Amino acid sequence: MNVSYQTRRDNAEIIANILNNCHMLFDLDVFEEGKIKLRVITDLGHFEYAEENIFRMQRFLKELRHFVKNKEDIDQLIEENSWE
């Protein structure tokens, strides 16, 4: 059995690719639903990424910021969900 493990960086690159290549971004937000989730809704589809707690999500958002073209969107998410 092959088990594929994706790192936080791998997931950040995947989501950044979606954000960088979409034509329309309809929703980009962080919310709590059992876990802390990042919701991305674009013309390419609806995607979610989950972390166990808000501190891990904050680290993920900082990692994601390195890969996106429009860093302001991620900066806004970090600011709106400032947990420090």
Rank of each mutant, 00 (worst) to 15 (best):
D10S: 12
D10Y: 02
N11G: 12
N11W: 09
N11S: 13
A12G: 10
A12C: 09
A12K: 04
I15D: 00
N17A: 07
I18R: 04
I18D: 01
I18N: 05
I18E: 12
I18V: 15
L19T: 08
N20H: 03
N20M: 04
N20V: 05
N20R: 06
N20D: 06
N20W: 05
N21G: 03
H23W: 01
H23Y: 12
H23M: 09
M24G: 02
M24A: 09
M24C: 05
M24L: 10
M24I: 15
L25G: 06
F26L: 11
F26V: 07
D27F: 08
D27L: 12
D27R: 13
L28I: 15
L28V: 10
L28F: 10
D29Y: 14
V30E: 03
V30S: 06
V30D: 00
V30T: 05
F31T: 04
F31K: 14
E32R: 15
E32A: 12
E33T: 01
E33W: 10
E33N: 10
G34Y: 13
G34S: 11
K35L: 13
K35T: 10
K35M: 14
K35S: 09
I36L: 07
I36M: 08
L38M: 08
R39V: 04
R39F: 03
R39T: 00
R39I: 06
R39Y: 09
V40L: 08
V40D: 01
I41V: 15
I41E: 14
I41D: 14
I41M: 11
I41Y: 13
T42G: 03
T42P: 00
T42V: 03
T42S: 08
L44Y: 12
L44D: 01
L44P: 01
G45A: 02
G45S: 05
G45W: 09
G45E: 04
